[in-house]
Amino acid sequence: MPEEEKKQRISRAWADLLGLSGGVEGQRPSNSRPPSINVTGDGPVIVGNGNVFKIHPNITVVQAGNGLIDIAQKRRILELRDQISGVSRHVDGHEMSPAFLMRRLNTHMGVECYTEIPADQFHKAESYLWRLRGMIDGMAGASTSPSWRDRRIQALLARCKELNCHGWRRSYMRKVFGTASIDDLSNDQVGKLHRAVMSRKAAA
């Protein structure tokens, strides 16, 4: 088919589709309205006087990764968020909703949404939530929440890892409690160790 004839057929087909047939070229009759057509999928569409056109819809592809936190890291953040919110319900006047906690985290990380946290800053976000959890765990009433002891130990160990001070922790435990094993400590002693670790400053 000659190129010019092909262009004319396409032009006529679109004119039919838009309700311009029989009118002045490029104008729509005042009493006609163009049809509303929704096209989905990827296949031939017949328009106008039988002309068939292959329509390829625009597809937006969202790529995972791009230097942002992955699914496992997102799950970990949400897990910590839910733990903090759950414990806070046992502390009078300090209840923190999941939404409130995420706003605090987003502000701390300088992002609009936690999913925008760069992968190489995940440790910073996790440490922030650990500190929040340690703070709420240390308040009156928190010890009545399930798994209080385990959370305290996890929080202080995470802080020791962040500060690279496990050696200091073991020395402190031997000096104060006469043991280097956390399993040997009572709940009160775990609480005291937690406070000592959380109050320790990072080395300059």
Rank of each mutant, 00 (worst) to 15 (best):
K201R: 14
V176C: 13
P35I: 13
S147N: 14
N187I: 01
L101V: 06
N38Q: 09
K74F: 07
I10K: 06
G65V: 00
H94P: 05
C160V: 05
D82A: 12
R195K: 11
M198T: 09
I59F: 12
R12L: 13
T179I: 15
S186W: 11
I136M: 02
Y172M: 10
C165N: 11
S127V: 02
Y128R: 08
P2D: 15
G178T: 13
R200I: 07
S181Y: 05
I69D: 04
V24F: 01
S199F: 00
N106V: 08
P29W: 05
K124A: 10
T60K: 06
R170Q: 11
P98D: 02
Q154Y: 02
R195L: 13
M198L: 09
L193F: 05
D150L: 13
G110A: 12
C165T: 00
S36C: 11
A140T: 14
D92L: 15
M135V: 05
S143N: 10
M96N: 07
R195F: 07
S145A: 14
P118V: 03
G26N: 12
N187V: 11
R152K: 13
N31E: 06
K6P: 04
Q121E: 04
A72D: 04
V47H: 10
A72G: 10
F53R: 02
T115P: 06
D16P: 00
G86N: 12
L80D: 03
E25L: 15
D82H: 08
E5K: 15
K74W: 04
I136W: 00
W130Q: 02
S199V: 10
E79L: 07
D70F: 01
A155E: 00
W130L: 08
F53I: 09
K7F: 15
K201P: 03
K54A: 04
V61N: 04
N51I: 13
S97H: 13
S36R: 08
S143A: 13
M198K: 01
G65A: 05
K192M: 14
A64P: 00
W168R: 06
G65I: 08
F122R: 01
N51S: 14
S36M: 10
N38D: 14
I77F: 02
D137E: 09
M198G: 07
G43M: 10
E25N: 11
S127Y: 01
G191R: 01
D92V: 08
I69H: 07
R12F: 13
M102I: 12
F122C: 02
Y128S: 10
H108Y: 10
S147D: 12
R169M: 12
L78D: 01
V91M: 09
M135R: 06
V61S: 04
K192C: 11
